[in-house]
Structures are given as structure tokens and as C-alpha cells.
Nucleic acid binder design. Structure first.
Lengths: 230, 230
DNA sequence: GGTGCTATGGTTAGGAA
DNA sequence: ATTCCTAACCATAGCAC
């Protein structure tokens, strides 16, 4: 008969912690590192299991950025920012049972309608700009813009106007950006593939500074993982 | 003595699954839903524990978008897109040892400069619009816009112009949006808290279709969670 | 900042509502 | 598509490198 001698416990094992700001700096760093990669792993699993597009961005308090994305962060962000469905729905070749899949032809139709709307949008922008100029004169606030003038009642009217202005701007930007992307594909500047339908131009400035593989499962996940200094 | 009768097992309990595309549609949907909220919860915990800024975006294969962010998705995306350090760097009260922290005064100075630049940006937009109108007349393509006219050489010049136009639009939008946000805080429409310095107004066009609280811990986390149809 | 080691605590697959 | 339930599975807190 073998005597089972209970070895002295080398660790306390996991202990329950309260979800509140960790005060110990070193502890915080370790936890950050572990949980961050935990989330990235979960994100990768989600995308594989469910065919979802996932993007995760994490800023540490030290100001570093870490991100994970499937198929990659930029694509997911671009889809989100442009309000356009992810590339998969435009893919007619992938004959899966996605009920929301939009045939390319239909998408083109929608796109043409959007373009038709563009002219009116641009006109509206000019209108609002005209209003701005009017207000500046009427308000007589010299160097400042009308929305900087606190004497103007900003409670309802002006805020809505600014919102309106912003919406117009954004609509125009979105549609022009969409067209620009098509043009680029036509020009061969971009390859058609699973690329963002609407490039988010304001993001072109990033410089990736390091790139690591995704260790856990030997890189079976499609997503990329990289961090770069700020 | 109480006789402990083993009740018949109502479930098999959790079973190990392989990380590969789930074929059963219903199964996939359930897993997607559960794991998605699991990730959001993890993200919330990470931000609370480690003071990190986290943003998560998930597209389902059905084309729906779900996102979580602390302090909110827009802020994280804006920081990522602009390459600017996260909002915590603007927080003078939190006297932590963040080397990237920017004093509030300095930020205000930068902001004023940005506003000053606004007028010029707007002028540039008008200029480009003028050019557009010119091109339309010169090109003689009637109903279509100049960028739709394939007879126009889009290889270099026009693409750059459109890019320029987009940059201008985006700059203006961002700055007006920033001002709008301040105005809202002043009006009490928003509470100051840890809110986005630059609200991404171009995302207002999305229609939130459902909003759920963040169940687990009774909504102690600052982040928001919402999904909307595409 | 990252790793390897364990004993837990927590997440979640499966089933049903 | 979320919610409840249970029994596994698995992530991870606390240490030491």
C-alpha cells in the first residue's frame, strides 16, 4: 500500500479578488499583462467559433497600446467607423447561409442612391455655413465663432445646428471615402480582397513598432496582435 | 441519519469543445452571445483593475455590431486613430506616475490653436468644393460628379485632392465636435466625468436598437455596452 | 513588462424555458 | 436572442524567476 503524503502547498492557489483598482503597481502590471492576453485569446476564439469580426484595443496606464483584431484591427475599425457591414456580407463567393448577406448588386444600388444624396448633403453644408456667417455678423462677436459665444443660447437650437452640420460633413466624407476606395481598387492601388470598403483616412499616420506572434495555440488564429509605443 | 439521494443529473455540465467554426447555427448564436458578453465583462474588469482604456468591437456574421468601451468606445477609437495618448493623460487630478500625462493647461493651449486653425480648414473645404464645381463644368459630365467620371485621370492628382478634401472635412468635424462636447457639458447635457474629449459625432448616425445594463456587478463599470443593427 | 507553477474561482457547454 | 441551471473546464491570483 502506498502512503499518500500530502505535500506542503506551494501556492495558495487562486484567490477571489474584488474588482477594483489594484493599488500595488507590480501586481497591477502582472494582472494587466495576463488578463489582456486572456481577452485577446477569447476574442480569437470568438472569431473562430462564430465567424465574427472582432477588434480589441487596450491602452495601459503607461500609455502603451495593444490591440488584437480579426481579420485585423484596421478592418474592424473601418467597418465600425464607416457604419458599413463587415466585408463578409459583401462576399458573394462565400456561399454561406448568412441571411443578412447583401448581394453585390444590391449594395451597388444602395451606393448609387447614397451618391445621389450627396449633392443635397453638400448643399446643406453650404447652407449651414451660410447660417454660421450670418450668426457671426448678427452676434457681432468678432474673432470668435458663433458656437464659442456664450451669449448665444446654446441650449437647443445651436447645438442641433452643429449636430446637423456635423452629420452633413460626415455623410459627405463617408460617401467620398467610399468612392475613393473604389477608385483605388480600380487603379490597382489596392487589391480587392477582404479590404475595408471605406478607408478611414485619418488613421494613416500610425507607425507599428513591434509585432509578436500569438503564442498560445501556435498561431492558429487568423487575427494579428501587435502593440506600439505612443 | 439523513439519506442523501443522488438526484438525476439534469445536465451533462460543460463539455470541452474544439476551437473551430461552429456548424450548428443555433449553437453558434448562443455561443456568440455568451462569449461576447464574457469578453465585454473581462474588458470591463481589466479597465477597473488596471485603469486601462479598453475598446471592443464585434461584428456578428449576421452583420450586427456590438461594442464595449471604457470610458467608451468612441474615446478609445479616437485615441487609437489619432495616435494620441488616452484621456487619462488629461486628468490632472489623478496624480499617477504616467510619464505621458499632459497637463490640462497645455491641452487647452493646443485646443485653442486647433480652433484657430478651424477657420482656415473651413476655407479650404470651400476651395476644394469650388474646384469640384469647376471640374464638373470643364469635364462636362452632366449629372455625374467629377470623381465618377472615368475619363478623368484619377491616378494621382484627383485622388490626392479627394484625400485632401477628406482630411479637411475630418479635421473640421473633429474640432467642431470637440467644441460641441464642451458646450454640452456646460449646458449640463452631459456630466463631466471621464468623458470623451472628442466625441466621434460621425457615429451618431447609427440607430441604437437595444441597450442593456451590464448585469454582473450591478453596473459598477463605467463602460457602455450597446448593439445596433446595420 | 513576461514566464512557469498550482489550487481555486469563474466561465461556459449543453439543455430547457 | 437572453436567461436559468448544473457540472465541468479553464483562466488566473499569488509567488518565484
Amino acid at each position: 500500500m502506498v502512503i499518500l503524503r500530502k505535500l506542503p502547498k506551494r501556492t495558495q492557489g487562486r484567490k477571489r479578488i474584488e474588482i477594483k483598482k489594484l493599488e500595488n503597481l507590480n501586481n497591477k502590471q502582472v494582472t494587466f499583462s495576463k488578463r489582456r492576453s486572456g481577452i485577446f485569446k477569447k476574442a480569437a476564439e470568438l472569431s473562430v467559433l462564430c465567424g465574427a469580426e472582432v477588434g480589441v484595443i487596450v491602452f495601459s496606464t503607461a500609455g502603451k497600446v495593444f490591440c488584437y483584431g480579426h481579420p485585423n484591427v484596421e478592418t474592424v475599425l473601418d467597418c465600425y467607423c464607416s457604419g458599413v457591414a463587415p466585408p463578409a456580407v459583401f462576399d458573394d463567393t462565400a456561399g454561406d447561409q448568412n441571411p443578412n448577406r447583401v448581394p453585390m448588386a444590391e449594395f451597388n444600388k444602395e451606393y448609387m442612391e447614397a451618391i445621389k444624396e450627396l449633392e443635397e448633403q453638400k448643399r446643406r453644408v453650404v447652407e449651414v455655413k451660410e447660417e454660421v456667417r450670418m450668426k457671426k455678423v448678427v452676434g457681432g462677436c468678432g474673432e470668435r465663432f458663433w458656437w464659442e459665444d456664450e451669449s448665444v443660447d446654446l441650449d437647443v437650437l445651436d447645438v442641433q445646428e452643429v449636430e446637423h452640420y456635423l452629420m452633413s460633413l460626415e455623410d459627405v466624407r463617408k460617401k467620398v471615402a467610399a468612392r475613393l476606395h473604389e477608385v483605388r481598387i480600380l487603379n490597382g492601388t489596392l487589391t480587392p480582397g477582404a479590404l475595408p470598403p471605406v478607408p478611414a483616412v485619418h488613421r494613416l499616420c500610425h507607425m507599428p513598432m513591434m509585432t509578436t506572434g500569438f503564442g498560445a495555440q501556435g498561431g492558429q488564429f487568423g487575427g494579428g496582435y501587435h502593440g506600439f509605443g505612443v
